[in-house]
Amino acid sequence: MSKWLRENLWRHAFATFMCIFSLFPLYLVVLSSFKSSGSLQLDSFVPKELSWDNYKMLFSSPKIPFLSWVKNSLIISSVVAISSVVVGAASAFAFSRLKFKGKKFGIQLLLLVQMFPAVLALSAVYVIMERVYSFAPSIGLGSQAGLILVYLGGSMGVNIWLLKGFVDSIPAELDEAAKIDGASPVQTYWLIFIPLATPVLAVVCLLSFIGTFNEFIVARLFLVEMQGRTVAVGLQQFIGGQYASNWGAFAAGSILASIPIVIIFLSLQKYIVNGLTAGSVKG
């Protein structure tokens, strides 16, 4: 028993502490989502009322097409996540495994460009997409397809870098063996690397999904049609307004919107943890 204590007590104590730290703000979100007043004022830690008004409002008010927002977010984030991994994985593989001239330069460029404070990129991207709109409105400013392109392009550097980090952690023995067997890099990529890296790719996919799901600075300029907004833009208007803020509806909406992500996370958590390193080629 004392051995158990010695070895496990600190583990439980620390984990419990961190759990409370994690849950605390979330608890307050849940609390305010059940308050009819729509305030964020945290006057009491014990729920005083259980009002479903905020949830009802999300589904009944014609002004709030909440389900469309969720659908938009899911579609945009999924497309961006999958496409960015498809495009990024190839580059990451090349950076990690192939030898070629200018590789070092390429990697450095990739890394440094991410440190460019690209806040003005917003203006540049806006101008570019405005021009695209003038000849192809369906993929220009104001369209979801246009936003997807912007996200995909804007996150390319980060995703390649991230994927490269993961790919580096996958032992190269197998694909080197394939190379000795006479496989071309393209074949190695498809036949050896991709199956091996699937967990890694899935994780980066998920990270990219979450990142896209949360974005609102660009989205609020692109998706102005009420029906076409993402959840982040839609919900932000409850509290970002100049006139009034409704924290209750915001909290309720946030909880509902994060349910799909939380479910994905929880059901895939083992997979994610393994995927984040994917170092195990034991099997």
């Binding site: 609020r220 300029l221 102005v224 009420m226 907004r229 100049q242």
Partner: peptide, 21 residues
């Protein structure tokens, strides 16, 4: 009518917009 999600978003769009959109 195009409704922006906030007054700030309207401002940002006006700051960036040109004659095209």
């Amino acid at each position: 009518v195009v409704s922006f999600s906030s007054y700030d978003a309207l401002k940002a769009a006006l700051d960036n917009a040109s004659g095209t959109t």
